[in-house]
């Protein structure tokens, strides 16, 4: 079994304002998806969601800017750690992530273990 980080990205879209009902549905789907991973005993860590409102980017020379992003309006909004046999399996799990239905994407990254020589 290998561990993979699923990194969730979303882009800011001022034009789309989901209704409370739609947001409720996304939340429900999200919880079902997460619990579905846990039900296969493949969830290592739920991880964290990263705040948009309280975020800064620090650059050399005491340059501090608001927000997590630079040119593109895409931002990382969280991550979760899972445990699967292969990256393909991790990709299959990521493919069910509800963030894909609201314009986001999931990056699948293997966690490099300390004894990893590959």
């Amino acid at each position: 079994m290998k561990e993979f980080a699923l990194v969730f990205r979303n882009s800011e879209n001022q034009d789309v304002k989901p209704s409370p009902e739609q947001m409720q549905e996304v939340l429900t789907n999200w919880m079902n998806w997460m619990a579905g991973i846990a039900a296969q005993n493949k969830l290592v860590d739920r991880g964290n969601r990263l705040s948009m409102s309280e975020s800064k980017t620090v650059k050399p020379g005491n340059v501090v800017t608001d927000g997590p992003y630079t040119e593109i309006k895409e931002y990382i909004n969280g991550y979760t750690l899972i445990r699967t046999e292969s990256i393909d399996e991790a990709v299959a799990i990521a493919g069910q992530c509800p963030i894909l239905t609201i314009g986001g994407s999931v990056e699948v990254r293997k966690v490099v273990a300390s004894d990893d020589n590959s």
């Binding site: 429900t28 919880m31 079902n32 997460m34 619990a35 846990a38 039900a39 296969q40 005993n41 969830l43």
Partner: peptide, 16 residues
Amino acid sequence: QLYNQLILTEYSPIIA
């Protein structure tokens, strides 16, 4: 919803 929370608290085949 409660089972979703429960399986996140602790994995067990029965809960799954």
